[in-house]
């Protein structure tokens, strides 16, 4: 029983991080058919933004305020990553629409450069971010099971981001435009929606969420220039498994991969677990090649 609770909790924790990372990817891929390989580096930018914010708080703020830095860091990470994402879209990605494989390569190049720039600025070794004191410790369920507050916080954070995304996509004018462009770009354009602006905004939001993910990752361990690459491949698998175009697909994909990963890793080893998950995904795609949830379309190339 205790084993099961711990299993489910760990699975949820892994899934929530995957979901946070995959959300931005799924949105940009669904909307623009652009695979953003620099997404991992946007995570890295979010993480370093948190690091810098923490440094500023230690330097210029009274000591008693230090614990509030994390709230500020969440905002800063979002804004910085969103800005850089928006710039990236303006300068590079808009030239690559309709060439998904090329966009993949070009953004990978950008990611490579961003990593190297981070190495120049912050140095190659990992740096540690001190977590705020209110996140230390854990919630004791039984005498032997303690759920760390940090992981609980991340799960709550992801739930909040997910809710915000849902409200944005399904309850606002901007979100409606976004869905329209996603379903039929040409028709949306004909009806007077500025697809350019929708693209830019969506890309910025997706990047901002990556920034938040980076901020959350600082709670789990030291951060380094290549922190994004650890997570990015798994996050892509979430997108492939979940399908694009609907939030629920991404959520299900993240839960599936996160849960199965923890499950297999407990009963086999970490490396065999990964192999099993990959085999399961390929097997699943035999049944649903477009992922769990796919937008219905009648168009054919």
């Amino acid at each position: 029983m205790e084993m099961t609770i711990l299993q489910v909790f760990n699975g949820l924790s892994v899934s929530s991080i995957l979901l946070l990372i995959a959300l931005g990817l799924a949105v940009t891929f669904g909307l623009m058919n652009v695979i953003n390989m620099a997404h991992g580096e946007l995570i890295m930018i979010g993480a370093y933004s948190t690091y810098v914010t923490q440094g500023l708080f230690t330097a210029y703020m009274p000591k008693s305020w230090f614990d509030t830095y994390f709230i500020a860091a969440l905002l800063v990470s979002f804004v910085v990553a969103a800005l850089i994402g928006w710039l990236l879209e303006m300068i590079l990605i808009r030239h690559l629409y309709g060439r998904p494989l090329d966009s993949l390569l070009a953004t990978w190049g950008v990611g490579m450069m961003l990593q190297q720039i981070a190495r120049f600025i912050f140095g190659a070794p990992n740096v540690a971010v001190t977590s705020p004191s209110w996140l230390n410790g854990g919630l004791a369920i039984t005498s032997s099971i303690v759920l760390p507050y940090k992981r609980l916080f991340i799960i709550v954070l992801v739930a909040l981001v997910l809710t915000a995304m849902y409200l944005y996509i399904y309850r606002t004018v901007q979100g409606r435009r976004m869905r329209a462009v996603m379903q039929n770009r040409n028709m949306a354009g004909c009806l007077g929606i500025s697809t350019r602006r929708v693209d830019g905004l969506t890309f910025a939001i997706g990047s901002g969420i990556a920034g938040i993910a980076g901020c959350a990752l600082t709670l789990l361990g030291p951060i380094g220039p290549s922190i994004g690459t650890y997570y990015i491949v798994d996050a892509f698998m979430v997108v492939v498994l979940g399908g694009v175009g609907k939030l629920i697909g991404t959520v299900a994909g993240a839960l599936g991969i996160g849960m199965f990963n923890t499950l297999f890793e407990t009963y086999t080893s970490a490396s065999i677990g990964k192999v099993l998950v990959f085999a399961l995904i390929v097997a699943f795609l035999q049944w649903k090649p477009r992922g769990l949830v796919a937008l219905r379309t009648r168009s054919l190339d």
């Binding site: 891929f29 058919n33 695979i35 998904p100 494989l101 993949l104 491949v233 892509f236 698998m237 997108v239 492939v240 080893s269 970490a270 490396s271 065999i272 990964k274 192999v275 990959f278 995904i281 390929v282 795609l285 035999q286 090649p289």
Partner: peptide
């Protein structure tokens, strides 16, 4: 066979790299 093409295929190949490398390091 299932018309998994383009970007989807590319991502799968990248995942293949990741798991094979983990496997080789792990064993």
């Amino acid at each position: 066979r299932n018309r998994i093409v383009g970007v989807y295929f590319t991502i799968l190949t990248q995942a293949l790299v990741m798991i094979v490398v983990t496997l080789f390091v792990g064993k």
